[in-house]
């Protein structure tokens, strides 16, 4: 579905992505995980052509991500970022329907599809007329998810989609997301720094460090056979943090 070969990206002297090879198989959820600055968000932006790679190849269903194809590829990919990136001057329905409007969908067809999505994402339909400023943080992320799913894309990219939410809402939305991904059989790439969230939502984890892939596999495999001292340390640190949270909650 998505294929990256020897992809590199530098910002000035800083190497953000240092020669990554990655295949994302269809209908699977892959989590890119690592400390901040490891290059995981950049990798997602490179897939969408929001940043341009300095070397290597990225293609999407056989189409290279270049000037000629990038717009068509973006239209077939849903993208959700932290805080949602909703347009403050448009109400929720207009935010969701923006691309469909460009595709000249009829108003009726748009309404119908948005109603479907509201049911899927558990979003109250009467809140569709609100602008982002009048929605809660969780509602905003649901709107952002609906916007990403509007045209039923085959691939969905999520960059820390739950990063700014408080724990309760975060848990609720995690559950909904897992259900939605399972039901729709989308190809999903999720960027997160939270090992628990990655494990909960994804089939496979890809652990990044300094722009390179440190290890790939499910959490059990990573625990069983960490590929490096770094992986072992990362797993320990995350478990410690999770335990602390549990204690505090108890």
């Amino acid at each position: 579905m998505l294929r990256l070969r020897n992809v590199e990206k530098r910002f000035g002297d800083v190497v953000a992505v240092a020669g990554i090879d990655l295949d994302v198989p269809p209908a699977r959820t892959l989590a890119l995980i690592g400390a901040s600055g490891c290059g995981k968000s950049t990798l997602l932006r490179l897939m969408l052509g929001l940043d341009r790679a300095d070397g290597g190849e990225i293609d999407f269903d056989g189409l290279p991500v270049d000037d000629e194809h990038v717009e068509a590829i973006r239209q077939r990919v849903g993208y959700v970022i932290q805080e949602g990136g909703l347009f403050p001057h448009l109400d929720a329905a207009a935010n969701i329907g923006l691309l469909a409007r460009h595709m000249r969908w009829s108003a009726g067809r748009q309404r119908e599809r948005i109603a479907e999505l509201c049911a899927l994402t558990h979003f109250p339909e009467d809140a569709l007329v609100r602008r982002p400023g009048q929605l809660s943080g969780g509602q905003r992320q649901r709107v952002a998810l609906m916007r990403a799913l509007m045209l039923d894309p085959s691939v969905v990219l999520l960059d820390e989609p739950l990063g700014a939410l408080d724990p309760l809402i975060r848990f609720e939305l995690q559950t909904d997301l897992a259900e939605i991904f399972a039901r729709l059989e989308k190809t999903v790439v999720l960027v997160t720094h939270d090992l628990g969230e990655a494990d909960f939502l994804a089939h496979e984890l890809v652990l990044l460090r300094d722009g390179r892939i440190e290890q790939r596999g499910d959490l059990a495999a990573l625990r069983r056979a960490p590929a490096s001292e770094f992986v072992a340390r990362f797993l320990r640190a995350q478990r410690q943090a999770a335990d602390d949270r549990t204690e505090m909650g108890a």
């Binding site: 969408l48 973006r74 990919v77 993208y79 970022i81 990136g85 909703l86 923006l98 691309l99 916007r147």
Partner: peptide, 10 residues
Amino acid sequence: ALRDSALALG
């Protein structure tokens, strides 16, 4: 972020 959102929509 909003500029990127618009770009990412295609």
